[in-house]
Amino acid sequence: MQEFIDIALTVNGEPVSRRVEARQHLVDFLRNELGLTGSHLGCEHGVCGACTVRVDGAVVRGCLMLAVQADGADVWTVEGLSDSGGIADLQEAFIARNALQCGYCTPGMLLTAAEMLEAGRRMTRTEIRAFLSGNFCRCTGYHAIVDAIGTVMERRFGG
């Protein structure tokens, strides 16, 4: 029962231990304590998806989880997934299709898209749109993002 707690976790494949304030959410921890500024804050009330990170294999709202809750967890951010090459085809498709403008939503969008690909099958544009609907993009109008994800599905799962 403390305001400061020691935690140990794995972030982007590397062990990390810190003492954190109980009230600090996961994305503030990643950004401010670890310098992983690729995850962004767009609303801090769980609607926009800019803070999306992967915890124990599933995407979560990084602003709706406390850092202390990630004690023992396996956390991945856009930086780690970029280094590992795990989303390289998605990133290339986003770039080729210009599926990003200001780029603020992009890390969260990519992580959500990566989870969509976990289904292991091609989806219709309607399905892709529904899956993306927890991630705001204010710049692109979504069309190009749907195109980019569809392209990767086609490449990974066949035409």
């Binding site: 995407v59 709706l64 959500t112 969509m116 927890g134």
Partner: peptide, 9 residues
Amino acid sequence: VAHVAVRNR
């Protein structure tokens, strides 16, 4: 019910 990231938690 909400969206994938919210449903995961």
